[in-house]
């Protein structure tokens, strides 16, 4: 008897028809509201609107755009160019070197390049895509599990495309849980639904105190927050997609609609906490929209992505010298 039939809310898996008292969705709403309030406050803090000159480099031609300081985003610049630029651009490159989120306000005059998944050197976009997949996986898992499952998102390690799978570490109130193939498909379907909604992915830098307030219900995040904010001048970067808010270093891609084919391929138990709680590593593989490969090749990628990812485990001590943060 799988614990999961009890756990998974809906979708392809057997459904347990119970009324759901969704305190976790209330928590998500609370976080999202705090995010909105802080976002609004930061926008109002800008005060008198100042202009900056953004030099756009790329197709169809290089142009200079006059934008609003601390308000206009690379996405707004793309809106001046074409609908295709808005849809396709995943990441912006500021002054030829700094990766910048599509929905993050520009701070000063700069040059701007818009990157998509098929640029000549897509390394930086690939990383952002992989990180976004982990983040979206967290959002999808929130939708999948019932209250009784006791789902807590732990963290996700830095993106490593070469490892073959993106990862999200979670804690469940059960040990030795093995999801059935149907349940795995439910996870994938939830991710695809999220992609179909085409939600924009927003970024916000908040103070440590606010971040603690946001994540007060999540023990693991509150443990991680002090060290994160200490490394980043007391600031914590949080991202939001729909109502799901999570800590991440960023950058991420502009919209969930840029996720094409995806599969959640495996859930491995990687540790436990006490007797009741198991720590699980959820893994998957995905391709951005516009990149298409045959089903055979994709099958190879799926198969590889189901092997346990060797990224840092949440139970291992954090290495000071690693380039990527525990929560990328």
């Amino acid at each position: 008897m799988s614990v999961v039939t009890k756990f998974i809310k809906r979708g392809l898996a057997p459904i347990n028809h119970q009324i759901r008292y969704s305190s976790s969705s209330e928590v998500a709403k609370y976080r999202s509201d705090l995010f909105s309030l802080e976002q609004k406050r930061q926008r109002e803090d800008v005060g008198r609107v100042e202009k900056i000159e953004v030099r756009y480099l790329g197709l169809p031609e290089d142009v200079t755009l006059v934008m609003n300081k601390d308000l206009s985003t690379p996405y707004n610049c793309a809106q001046h160019l074409s609908e295709g630029h808005c849809k396709r651009s995943a990441l912006a490159l500021i002054n030829g070197s700094v990766a910048w989120d599509m929905h993050r306000p520009l701070k000063e005059s700069c040059t701007l390049q818009l990157l998509n998944f098929t640029v000549a050197d897509p390394h930086i976009v690939n990383r952002a895509f992989w990180r976004t997949c982990s983040f979206m996986l967290g959002a999808a898992l929130h939708e999948c599990f019932k209250e009784e499952a006791g789902l807590q998102l732990h963290s996700f390690p830095g993106p490593n495309v070469k490892s073959g799978s993106f990862v999200h570490d979670i804690v469940l109130a059960a040990r030795n849980w093995k999801p059935t193939p149907k349940e795995m498909r439910t996870f994938s379907a939830e991710l695809i639904k999220l992609a179909a909604k085409d939600l924009k992915i927003e970024r916000l830098d908040v103070s440590n105190a606010l971040a603690m307030e946001m994540f007060k219900d999540n023990r693991y995040k509150t443990e991680q927050l002090p060290s994160i904010s200490a490394q980043n001048n007391g600031q914590v970067t949080v991202y939001r997609v729909g109502q799901h808010v999570d800590i991440s270093r960023g950058p991420m891609i502009g919209s969930t609609g840029q996720l094409g084919r995806c599969t959640i391929s495996a859930v491995h138990e990687i540790g436990h906490e006490g007797d009741g709680n198991g720590i699980y590593r959820v893994q998957g593989v995905a391709l951005p929209i516009g990149i298409r490969i045959g089903h055979f090749a994709y099958g190879i990628l799926e198969e590889r992505s189901s092997k346990l990812n060797s990224a840092r485990l949440p139970t291992e001590p954090f290495e000071e010298h690693s380039t990527e943060h525990a929560i990328a």
Binding site: F117, K162, I291
Partner: peptide, 22 residues
């Protein structure tokens, strides 16, 4: 259609190359 097989840095090529190596 752009030729996506030549640029080995594209995400699907990175994934396939690593799968081959493994």
């Amino acid at each position: 259609y752009p030729d996506q097989s030549q640029n080995r840095n594209l995400i699907h090529n990175v994934l396939l190359d690593e799968a081959r190596k493994e």
